[in-house]
Design a protein around this nucleic acid. Structure first.
Lengths: 167, 167
DNA sequence: TTAAACTTTCAAAAAATACTGAAAGTTTAA
DNA sequence: TTAAACTTTCAGTATTTTTTGAAAGTTTAA
C-alpha cells in the first residue's frame, strides 16, 4: 500500500465511522486529514484535498474547534489561518469523553432522574416505568463518572486502567 | 409529572439519543416503548402508540432483533406476534457492547492495522500517518478488549468494575 | 384446499441533513 | 482611509435517510 492509498483509506474509514457516531462525514474527514498531516493546513488545502466547498469547510472546522480537538494556528508572516488537530491520541480521547459527557450523558441523566422521580400511582405500567428509568439512570451515572475520570486524570490513566482491568 | 407525560418524555429522549448514536429515531423509540411496557406488544400496539406505519414498524423491529435486544414472544391462543425487549439493563449493556464491537470496532481496528503496516518510505508524511494510525490502533484495541470483557463476563462485572475504578 | 389474519418487502414520497457559492463581513497592510 | 486577502453566513439546492402504504408473501384454522 502506498502513501496515497493508505491516506485515502484512513480518511474514508474515519469519515464513515464518524457518521456512525453522530458526527458528520465531512467533519470526521477533516479531522482525519489534520490528524495525519505533519504541517498545519489552510482552508484552501483542506478544500482542495477533500474536494469540498469553502462554506462547508468553514462550518465543519468551527464545529471541530467547538469540540476542542482542532485549533487555529498562526504561521508567522502568513495572513491565512492554519489548522491543526490534537495529535496526542490520549488527549483526544480525554477531550471526546469530556464533550460527550457534557453534551449527551449529562442531559440524559437529568431526564432519567426526573422521569424516575414521577409520582408512583401503584399501576403496573407506572411501576415498570420507574423501575426501568431508575436502572438506566444508575447505568448512565456510572458511565458518566467513568468518562469524567478519563477526562480529568492524567494522560495515561485511562490506558493504564484499561490494561489493569483487562488482565 | 403523570404517567403519560413521563412516558412521552422518556420515549422522545431515548429517540433523540438513539439518532445521536447512529441508531434511527424510530428504532430507538420502539425500543424505549418495549423497555417500559410490562406486557409484550403487538405490531398494532406499536404502530398506534408511536403513530408510525406498518412497514416502518416491521423493519425497525427486525433491526432491533438483529441487535439481539428485542424478541418475539408468542402468546398462547393468539395468532399475532408479540414483542418484548431485554428488560435487564446490565444484559442490555452487554449486548450493545458486543454488537458495537462486532459492527464498528473490529472492522476499524483491522483497517488501522493495515494502514499502519504500510511501507515506510522515510518521508515525514508517511512517518506521521504510520505513527498516528498505530496510536489509534492501540487505543481502539484497548477499548475493544474492554467492550468484550463487558460482553462476556457475568452480569455484574461491568458495574462492579466501574465502581472500583471510580473510587 | 382456501380464505382470513397476519407480516414482509419495496418503489415512491416525504423529511431531514449536508453542501454550495456568492454576498456580506472582517482583518491587515500600506 | 482603502482595497486586498481572507473568513463567515445563509438561502437555495442536492443528497441521503426515513417513512409510507399497497402488493406480495406467509401461516393457520377450518
Amino acid at each position: 500500500m502506498n502513501y496515497d492509498e493508505a491516506k485515502n483509506k484512513f480518511i474514508s474509514t474515519w469519515g464513515s465511522l464518524g457518521s456512525l457516531w453522530g458526527i458528520n462525514k465531512t467533519m470526521a474527514q477533516i479531522h482525519a486529514l489534520l490528524l495525519i498531516s505533519p504541517e498545519p493546513l489552510s482552508m484552501e488545502d483542506i478544500m482542495e484535498q477533500l474536494q469540498i466547498s469553502r462554506g462547508n469547510t468553514s462550518m465543519n472546522l468551527r464545529q471541530l474547534m467547538d469540540w476542542g480537538i482542532v485549533f487555529k494556528e498562526n504561521i508567522m508572516g502568513e495572513r491565512k489561518e492554519y489548522f491543526t488537530s490534537e495529535k496526542d491520541i490520549q488527549e483526544l480521547t480525554k477531550q471526546i469523553a469530556k464533550e460527550r459527557s457534557r453534551r449527551e450523558l449529562k442531559p440524559t441523566i437529568k431526564i432519567l432522574k426526573d422521569v424516575s422521580n414521577m409520582q408512583q400511582d401503584g399501576t403496573s405500567k407506572t411501576t415498570e416505568l420507574i423501575k426501568q428509568t431508575k436502572a438506566l439512570h444508575e447505568m448512565a451515572s456510572n458511565l458518566d463518572t467513568m468518562m469524567n475520570k478519563i477526562a480529568t486524570h492524567d494522560h495515561n490513566w485511562f490506558t493504564k486502567t484499561l490494561l489493569k482491568l483487562i488482565k
